[in-house]
Structure formats: structure tokens, C-alpha cells
């Protein structure tokens, strides 16, 4: 972890961000638009700092992250069994594949008005929006993962006396894990996108999406940009701290995927 933070590629990534910040600063100070619409970095940073101190941005981020994780959990509870059974049994695959193929390309936000009609405004609808977006990567990847299990592992295990249940638990599940893991990771990304829209349209309680939407009422572009910044930071922090460390402890350790950054 520390080496990743200190590595050259990390500083290259920082350089890219600094360049973007510089361009924004020049643009904001050029006077093309009023600074009320395009505030310079210093004022955004100020707002970030102020909202961190009064706790509001942290509270909003905590709400949003909790909703994403709840939706991700829902997606795993629904998606893992479906995807894995699809990979194992032709009949299940034939039943679910058309359904999955039709539902997958529909953006979860398209469902929001209907969900509001059915479940009202609030947490249930937000959870469903996130869950919907996150379920399909989980289904799709666990389905693919089960089919990608090396037949030699299966043959070896059968020759060594594994029963169907042992085969499933000791070979199919770990064998499919790199795909399943990727699916959950993508699902987190999709859920993180969906939650913001869900909060804007269907959740009056706290949340980063809500904060942006409310700030619109007061033309408060600083809060909007500060919240957008927080969305990015929390998303990448979670990806780095949670998913990358799970990866380096499991599938990368087993040599089933190359460790992040190892190919260069």
C-alpha cells in the first residue's frame, strides 16, 4: 500500500490532477464567467474545509456510502446466486439470460419515477436504484466466472473423489473468484454513479447527491463542486483501500490476476 502511494506512477497521476486544477483556476480567474458560477479552486477548497469542519460533507458522504454498500449487498444477494446457477445449469441460463439481457442495458435512473410511484420517495427507492444498477455486473461476471473455471481443475477434483457439493465449494467458487470479484468491483462503481441520481430524484434526506441538488436552489456552485469533489474522493478511496487490498490478498496473491501496476 505505502509503496503504491510513493511510486512514480502515483506522482504521475497527481501531476495530471494538478494540471487539471491549474487549467480550472486560470479559467475561473479569466473573468469569462462570474466567479459565482465558476469559483476558483481556493474558494472550493475553502468550502470543502468548512463543510468538513461543520461535519456536513462527512455526514452526507457517510449517507451516500452507506446507501451504495446496502445496494451492493442487495445486488450480491440477488446477483451471485443467479449468476452462479446460470453458469452451472443450462436450464437456469436459458431462463435468466433473455431476462438479464433485456434488463441490463436499461439505466437504473429510468426506473426512478416508477419506483417512486410504487415505493414512494425515500430509502427504499434509493436502495432499489443502486441495487438495480449493481446487480447486472454481479450476475454477468459470476456467470462468466463459473463458465471460465478450468476443466482440468474439475477433472482433477473428480479424480480425487470430490462430490458435486465439494466440487462446487472447493473448485468452482474459488476458480470463479477473479471474475466474481471484478463483478462486485464494477457493481460498486455502477452503484456509486446510480446513488447520486437516486438521491437527487428520490431522497429528501442527506447525501452528496442531495447536497448538490439542494445547493442548486441557492446557486451555491461552491457546495456543488465541493460535493462533486467528495464523490470522487470517497469513490477512489474505497476502490483503493478496500478493493485493491482484497485483490492483493486473494486473486493477485494466487497469481490469477496480475497485481495492479505490476505489468509495467
Amino acid at each position: 500500500m505505502t509503496s503504491a502511494f510513493l511510486s512514480r506512477s502515483f506522482w504521475r497521476g497527481i501531476a495530471g490532477l494538478l494540471l487539471l486544477a491549474l487549467l480550472w483556476e486560470l479559467f475561473a480567474r479569466s473573468g469569462l464567467f462570474t466567479q459565482a458560477l465558476t469559483p476558483p479552486i481556493t474558494r472550493i477548497a475553502n468550502t470543502v474545509w468548512r463543510t468538513v469542519l461543520d461535519g456536513s460533507i462527512l455526514e452526507n458522504a457517510a449517507y451516500t456510502l452507506t446507501r451504495v454498500l446496502a445496494g451492493l449487498l442487495l445486488a450480491c444477494l440477488v446477483g451471485l446466486p443467479i449468476g452462479i446457477l446460470m453458469g452451472r445449469f443450462r436450464a437456469v441460463e436459458r431462463f435468466f439470460l433473455p431476462l438479464v439481457s433485456v434488463l441490463m442495458p436499461i439505466p437504473s435512473l429510468a426506473w426512478v419515477p416508477l419506483f417512486i410511484l410504487w415505493f414512494g420517495i425515500g430509502e427504499v427507492t434509493t436502495l432499489l436504484v443502486v441495487g438495480y444498477a449493481a446487480t447486472f455486473p454481479v450476475i454477468y461476471n459470476s456467470w462468466t466466472g463459473v463458465r471460465a473455471v478450468n476443466p482440468l481443475w474439475v477433472r482433477s477434483a473428480l479424480a480425487m473423489g470430490a462430490g458435486q457439493r465439494q466440487l462446487f465449494r472447493s473448485v468452482v467458487l474459488p476458480g470463479a473468484s477473479p471474475y466474481v470479484f471484478t463483478g462486485i468491483r464494477l457493481a460498486f462503481g455502477r452503484g456509486w454513479i446510480a446513488v447520486i441520481g437516486g438521491e437527487m430524484l428520490a431522497n429528501p434526506a442527506a447525501g452528496l447527491g442531495r447536497a448538490i441538488f439542494d445547493a442548486r436552489e441557492y446557486l451555491d456552485s461552491e457546495v456543488m463542486l465541493a460535493s462533486i469533489f467528495a464523490i470522487g474522493v470517497v469513490g477512489i478511496a474505497f476502490e483503493r483501500l478496500v478493493f485493491q487490498s482484497i485483490e492483493s490478498r486473494t486473486v493477485a496473491r494466487w497469481g490469477m490476476v496480475a497485481a495492479a501496476g505490476a505489468r509495467r
Binding site: N150, L152, W153, R155, S156, A157, L158, A159, M160, G161, A162, G163, Q166, S170, V171, P174, G175, S177, T250, V251, W254, G255, M256
Partner: peptide, 30 residues
């Protein structure tokens, strides 16, 4: 299951198990 099988392909070992855990697999199944 009274036969041991060894294939040509190195990928026959379970990558998520250490060498020892691989060797233990058949015993574990029993």
C-alpha cells in the same frame, strides 16, 4: 476414485491453494 491423474498442463494445480494444500486436496475430500 481409486486413480490418481496427472495432466500435461501445468494449470491443473489449484492456483488458490499452496503446494501443500494442493497435495492435501484428495485427503480433504475423504
Amino acid at each position: 476414485h481409486n486413480r490418481g491423474v496427472v495432466f500435461q498442463d501445468f494449470a491443473q494445480l489449484f492456483p488458490w491453494r499452496t503446494a501443500r494444500q494442493n497435495v492435501e486436496f484428495g485427503l480433504e475430500m475423504r
